[in-house]
Amino acid sequence: MEKRTAGRQQLVRSRVGVDGWAKAPPSVEAARPGQCPRCGAASRPVGVGTVLQGHGTRSRQVRGPAQPGQQARVRVVQVRRYRCQACGGTCTVAPWEVAWRRLYSVAAIAWALALWGLVGMGLTAVRRLVNPWTHTGASEAGRWRTPRRWLRAVHQGQMLPQVHALRPWPPHWLPRKAAAHVASVVAGYAPPAAPSPPLSVQAFLGAVRAQ
């Protein structure tokens, strides 16, 4: 599992994907991290009661296609929450595709940036591929700002931290060039395959390892 810090809350990503999670949600015990991601206290120390206790569930949207080229949709999962009796902090355990404070899956985000930056598609066309809704308001038509927010989050180390840690980009770069850079780095984390898929698909597949 991998964790993401945000104040007193933590996001812990499971190795289970959204589809597997939705079909067979893990039990409280199965999803419980081995230790509190905030203070490091053992979840179930020997001879002591459970320290990291179940704290209910919460509905979580995950937007975007399950695989490159598939129909984009909204999948809803019940993520599990825990509260640490040692430090009082809470954590959320979610499928690996979930990104902190993002409604789109991290794989869909990487794919969208690859289509924009590497393939050269316009944002309107990219949006049609990753956005589950076909109709948008007049104020948003042709002005999809979300990818630029994703780039800011990556540049600040809030998402896809391997990109920021290994190869940050100069702030004067244009957004499309930055998107191509992010997608190229993420694609490098894709598992090897023969024949090798297009770079945009590699970015989708590499997102899980770039977190």
Rank of each mutant, 00 (worst) to 15 (best):
A178W: 01
T92Y: 15
G49N: 14
Y189R: 15
R209I: 10
V77S: 00
T92N: 11
R209H: 13
G64K: 04
L174F: 12
G54L: 09
R83P: 00
A6I: 12
A107S: 13
R44H: 15
K177M: 13
G34Q: 06
P45S: 05
G69F: 12
C84Y: 00
Q202P: 02
P191V: 08
L129D: 04
L118N: 02
C91S: 07
R73E: 09
V130W: 00
V126D: 03
C91R: 02
W133K: 12
V46K: 09
S200G: 11
G54W: 05
S200R: 14
W144G: 00
G122M: 12
A94W: 03
A112C: 10
A141D: 12
G17R: 01
R101A: 07
G56D: 10
G188R: 15
P147L: 02
A153K: 06
R102M: 12
P65S: 05
A153L: 05
H155R: 15
A210S: 06
Q53G: 02
S59A: 12
G64W: 02
G64Y: 02
P132G: 00
P95D: 02
W96R: 00
G206H: 05
L118T: 00
A107H: 05
K3L: 15
A179F: 02
V208K: 14
Q156Y: 06
G120F: 02
A165Y: 07
S43G: 03
L118H: 02
W144R: 04
P168W: 03
E97D: 01
W144M: 04
K23C: 11
A125M: 12
R38Y: 03
R101I: 04
K23Q: 14
H155N: 12
A110I: 06
A180W: 11
H164F: 11
Q10A: 07
E29F: 14
K177F: 10
P175F: 06
G142K: 06
E2S: 09
W133H: 10
V119K: 11
A42I: 13
R60K: 14
L103C: 07
R83M: 06
P198S: 07
C87G: 01
G188E: 14
G137I: 06
Q78P: 02
M1K: 12
V163E: 15
A112V: 05
P25T: 03
P191Y: 10
G122Q: 12
A187S: 13
R101H: 08
C36L: 07
